[in-house]
Amino acid sequence: MNDYIDIWRRLTLFHSTNVAQKFLYHCYIKQERQDAAKKSYANCYPFIYYLEHGQNFYSTAKHAPLSIKPVLLFYGMVQLLKACLLTVDAEYPESTSVLAHGVSTRKRKKQSYEFFEDEVKVQKHGLFTHFSEKMFHVKHLAGEKFKMRILLQRIYEIHELFSFYYKENLALDVMYDHLNQKIMIPGKILDHYHMTFNRFKDFIIKELDSFNITSIKDEGPSSYICLTLEHKQKLTPLSCEPFLYGMYDKTYRFPTNMTNIFKTPEITAHYLLLYNLSMICRYETEWWNELLHSYSSDAYPFIIKFLSVTADKVPFLLHYFLLDKFESLKSI
């Protein structure tokens, strides 16, 4: 059975106030909150309602016309994020500032608008910066900008389109032995980075600073570079950057060019892309419908592919966030 198909059934385990309250209680105890019991009782119903509301958005999006899917998918994601936030922030929403989206889009020039070149800009306050910091410990600066093309490159499942349309090889498949904590990167990665093994070794230790690497071995240029992680560490779908996780085939990839986007949690790329597409389909109706009906833009297949992938992958990643936390707390 594919994990991504089973997501909503798995999340129903939280559709019990008793289970939700105990789960949140253990989350807050781990955070050493003195009011863990009080807060867990207060938040268990909102937690369940956010999950249920999110599922309703995704279920509706599945059967909705393509023209309105981005709005439904975006607000479905927002509801799931709110449920996740309650596990790490008992006070959410502490103020109205975190209720805003946290990003904005630029004004478009209608005649020459190109989706790939469009940008979203991070605001000082709002949901985007709040969940990035609370859930993933990543701080985004106000005014930081992200281009749509770059955000699409962050998502493993979109890479085949970049390869087909632009002959861009954005990442290489790696082998991950989770039992022995070994990551095997193809030796030809050295050609992409124009590095010797020793230089790449120094580079990878710096780039993978969140991982404790116990050894790096070169098994020949036509073979693999083997990274061994500390026993307790592992690659996971949610926290593997700069590696990318493929949901459908359960594989990891390593980028052939270490740009900053690959160091960012994938869930942020989905949020920013969905936010912009939801704004476009609501407020740029003429361009949006021309895109959907004229097939004149290279962006069309990328957008359609993204909407298909994100409908599966965001619930998968966020359900992983909750269930991984649930499993880690069961022994408490």
Rank of each mutant, 00 (worst) to 15 (best):
I5W: 10
N18T: 15
R33C: 09
C44S: 06
P46D: 05
H53L: 03
T60D: 07
A64T: 04
S67R: 06
F74I: 11
M77W: 00
K82F: 09
T87K: 05
V88K: 15
S95I: 04
R108E: 13
K109W: 04
K110T: 09
Q123H: 09
T129H: 01
F131C: 02
S132A: 15
S132L: 08
E133A: 09
G143I: 04
R149G: 05
I150D: 14
L151Q: 10
Q153Y: 00
Y156E: 06
Y176A: 03
D177W: 01
Q181W: 02
Q181S: 12
I183E: 01
I185C: 01
I185V: 12
H192K: 11
D209R: 04
S210G: 11
D218W: 08
Y224P: 00
E230D: 14
Q233F: 14
L235M: 09
P237E: 04
F243V: 03
Y248D: 12
R253W: 10
P255R: 01
N257H: 12
T264G: 03
P265C: 08
Y275K: 03
L277N: 09
S278H: 11
M279S: 06
Y283C: 13
L291Y: 03
H293S: 15
S294P: 00
Y300F: 14
T310M: 09
E327S: 14
